[in-house]
């Protein structure tokens, strides 16, 4: 009982989480042929909405290069990343409920909303230039022996460092 409590209540060590994520990503890659990505799934959802509005965006150049195209038979809403994205949310919900840590979060103030939206836009744009976010372009890229994962890693740490400095000086 005590072990179970510790397992669901206490945060797991980073090393344990890292190993589990690595094993799961390897299984995903071997089963589906594509490693885990997050923001690409968001892009597909956005594109799905634009497509529903009547734009012909499936022919865009972006979707013909660098593995950005959908698999045969997949749509912008019905694809592997939709399932993975929703599963992350479902899994996090289950973990939060098991630990009795579930809580509705609100927007604290206008400032948080404004900087959140600006940050989101910059991150979204940046993730397309860099072939993904820290999952698709770092966590999945480096084990795939892709050089861009290392370049991404270096600049992610630089960016986080500069971002923290700016945050500390001007926003807190």
């Amino acid at each position: 009982m005590r072990l179970w409590k510790g397992l669901i209540k206490k945060p797991w060590p980073y090393l344990v989480g890292g190993i589990i994520l690595a094993v799961l990503n390897i299984i995903l890659f071997s089963v589906s042929g594509k490693p885990w990505r997050i923001t690409t799934g968001f892009l597909y959802w956005g594109m799905g909405i634009i497509e529903k509005l009547g734009f012909d965006n499936t022919n865009w150049y972006y979707f013909s290069v660098y593995g950005n195209q959908l698999n045969e038979g997949e749509t912008f809403f019905n694809n592997q990343y939709t399932i993975l994205g929703l599963s992350v949310i479902a899994g996090a919900l289950i973990a939060a409920l098991l630990a009795s840590e579930f809580k509705w979060k609100i927007i604290k103030n206008r400032r948080q909303l404004f900087f959140g939206l600006v940050g989101g836009l910059i991150m979204g744009y940046g993730s397309r230039l860099s072939f993904g976010c820290n999952i698709g372009s770092y966590f999945s890229a480096i084990p795939s022996f892709s050089l861009h994962g290392w370049v991404y890693g270096i600049f992610m740490f630089l960016g986080a460092w500069v971002g923290c400095k700016l945050l500390f000086k001007f926003l807190l």
Partner: peptide, 16 residues
Amino acid sequence: CMYEACPIPLLKALKK
């Protein structure tokens, strides 16, 4: 630090 995510709580603590 309610409703605030990493790294804001840590930076706020550092500053304070």
